[in-house]
């Protein structure tokens, strides 16, 4: 499985007073099994781009290839794309609608035309993957659950379609620190167990540095930076010019560097920064 995006352009309200260019000449590739972190401000074009990947928006020009197949030529059946590419929107818990959790999670599989038995199997597996107890929760109303659980159920609803590419738009938005950690661990587990491409949008640079194999920075409808977390976060000046930042661990390392010029660190995570400090102190002591 792979994604290729070529020269994608998208214009809202073309020829109208409200005309806005949302994407300009966006091209990139995502290899099988990758976790791609996407960062950028509201209005940078992130959401518009992600919606192109499963055909919810048709580009003004340019192509999207999923597994080598062009999905933007108008010939592909939309259900085939959505079977392959699962998209979880921001605050997905607001899209729950069924009487019971299991019915809600079964909505996707049912739309794919699977039979009853297969639907239930998918539901069971998906609920397990998001870390909930199937027997305990299947007959409850989704509206009775806590916020964090609702979000898990909503994510299960997309996972139950058994996508090969899973896109999550800010999966941790609005959660408290411990629910935040739980959801991140869950996302990581889903990626590892399903062996899929995972794309997630986040405003939390520490999460992006920790989770991603590759990072893409969107700004003003364009891909501004792209590369490994180390490559992207070594360009702190460019990021801050876009109003973005590096992970806090890197920020602290940079601060130390300014005050202690022989200290050097390319740390992205807390552990790396702590390790570099330890080493530096041992060296200066010795």
């Amino acid at each position: 499985m792979s994604i290729s995006v070529r020269n994608l352009n998208y214009i809202y309200n073309p020829g109208m007073p409200g005309e806005t260019v949302a994407l300009r000449d966006v091209s990139f590739d995502v290899a099988d099994g990758t976790i791609l972190g996407v960062i950028g401000h509201t209005g940078s074009g992130k959401s518009t781009l992600l919606q192109h990947l499963n055909g919810l928006i048709k580009p003004t020009s340019g192509e999207v290839y999923i597994d080598g197949e062009c999905i933007t030529d108008g010939k592909t059946k939309m259900t085939d794309i959505r079977r392959k590419v699962g998209l979880v929107f921001q605050y997905p818990e607001y899209q729950l609608f069924e009487e019971t959790v299991s019915k809600d999670v079964a909505f996707g599989p049912k739309n794919l035309g699977l039979d009853e038995e297969e639907q239930q199997e998918r539901v069971k597996k998906a609920i397990g993957l998001v870390g909930l107890d199937y027997d305990e929760i299947k007959d409850l109303s989704p509206f009775e659950l806590s916020g964090g659980m609702k979000r898990r159920v909503a994510i299960a609803g997309v996972i139950a379609m058994d996508p090969k590419i899973l896109i999550l738009d800010e999966p941790t938005a609005g959660l408290d620190p411990s629910a935040h950690r739980d959801i991140l661990a869950m996302v990581r587990r889903i990626h590892d167990e399903m062996g899929i491409i995972l794309i997630f949008v986040s405003h939390n640079m520490a999460d992006v540095a920790e989770m991603s194999d590759k990072v893409m920075v969107m700004s003003d409808g364009q891909v501004a930076l792209e590369g490994t977390p180390a490559e992207v976060f070594s360009q702190g000046d460019k990021l801050s010019a876009m109003g973005l930042s590096v992970p806090p661990a890197r920020e602290i390392a940079e601060l130390i560097k300014r005050k202690a010029p022989d200290f050097s660190s390319k740390a992205l995570t807390i552990d790396e920064a702590a390790g570099d400090i330890r080493r530096y102190l041992e060296e200066t002591r010795g």
Partner: peptide, 13 residues
């Protein structure tokens, strides 16, 4: 608009 798209993403027709 968002709800419609979210349900379409789950294969709704």
């Amino acid at each position: 608009d968002k709800i419609i798209k979210a349900q379409q993403a789950r294969g709704a027709d």
